[in-house]
Nucleic acid binder design. Sequence first.
DNA 1: GTAGGGTTAG
Length: 550
Amino acid sequence: MTFISVSSRLLSFLRRRRIGTSSCFQSLSIGVVHFHVNDNIAKPNSIPHSTHSIPNPHIKLQQYLVQKSKSGFDNLDDALAVFDKMLKLRPLPYDFHFNQLLTVLVKMKQYQVAVSLFQEMSSRKIDVDIITFNIAINCCCHSNRVDYAFSLLLSAFKRGFVPDVFTYTTLIRGLLSQHKSAEARLFFTNLIKLNELRPNVVTYSTMINGLCKTGHTQMAIWLFRFMGKSDCKPNTVTYNTVIDSLCQHGLVDDALILQSEMMEKGILPDVWTYSPLIQVLCKLNRWEELSLLLKQMIEDMNISPNVHTFTILVDAYAKSGKLDDAKQIIKIMNERGEYPNIVTYNSLMQAYCSQGQMDEALDVLSTIKSKKMMPNCYTYNILLDAYCRELKLDIAMVLYRNMECEGLSPTVVTHNILLHGLCQLGKTMEALAFFYKIQELGHKPDIIIYQTLFAGLCKSNYVDKALSFFQTMECNGLIPESKTYNIIICGCLWNKKYNEASKLLHKMVDCGFSADALTTSLLQQILTKVQDPTLLAMHQKCLQSGNYEQ
DNA sequence: GTAGGGTTAG
């Protein structure tokens, strides 16, 4: 069942409810209670007022589940065995016992298993409540089955349950996580209009986060400001979400203003408030402000950086060539018990690689292994890239084969690094063979792989081949970017193929690309060879907009 | 029982 069909049915369901069908829901609700009373199997269906009325096996079960909700199950089989035992228990455990078990599975991220148990419970007509439905709906959303989540919502309606703010917030998050932001917005506003939902701080924060993540930052900020004027004020999570989004968009000053604002309002920042701010200040080389912010965080607010925060610092120092500072951070991490993880070590490794200190980089690999950590694809890609840049393709290839021995599947990034390495060495035919080979292995080339291939082919004067692959790429549904055009136009000019270059520039214009500095320069070169009024107009437009580099 | 949870590679 698709979302659209479920969604439209749902909204009509809600509308019907607004037009005086509340009695229908009431009777449905009574029907559910009636079902419990007359059922042959003795099944308690609501939480008893005191523990005196809970049968002894249920008390033991509850104690066991409370313990498991803290520690989790060692493995899935144990959880399933408990479920089987619960099914055999007479009288049957209460709905909240089943909810407890499902919640443990959620904590173990066993979403699909939880949904299966929910289905099993439904088929055995075991009593559930709206919380059970909410857990199942949440699990569907986490498994990217928002369509099934909506069909569960319909089932809940049909069984007389009244969805609550948890149900709707979960579904909104599900839609947003599936990039269905338009549907989420419509769902959210319609529910409010129909008085079905009174959003709480989690609902608003969920919407704001989803809007930020789907590129609707302005709308997210509008909603955030709307919240500020409403009865439901933003909390730390809400502020963190917006601050993070502003940082992602490079709007660090706005983010810093928001961080001051939250403190003035008495909303305490946490480590997650500071991490994106730290990251963006590092990126912009605003070291003095960074040091003030770190001082505020650690000394004034008494917030300790976590592994994530420290890793941001290691990476920033590494990228700025401040290798000693990066090493110092690692030392502090070890002293404070915030031990470096694979990401931290990868950043450190990159620092050594960028300085050409390959022996030290390999030492980091040994450290990773000695600490019983598993190198990941990033680890190998960093090393492979460094060796390729040093034109040591043989070593890179050995490492590439090593990846598979360690159970790591090379990614499209790995293949691009090697393809680039082959092209750099002028081994164009080997590069082409490698390009075919990765496809035979089932890897789909992306736009960057194609760009590497085009650059390699053009460099070796195989521009016709590059043009032919350009068509193949488009047939495969990949949309060229302005960089893609620039590479291939540059190749055409290099090979004196002015008409082909001109055609590509026309195509760029037709596709709505505006010329950047490189395109403008290429355009100028073509105009010295080809008389073309359209390109001339384009070039003049570029010069007027100041989009030109010598 | 619902939100954030973002760090590393081409």
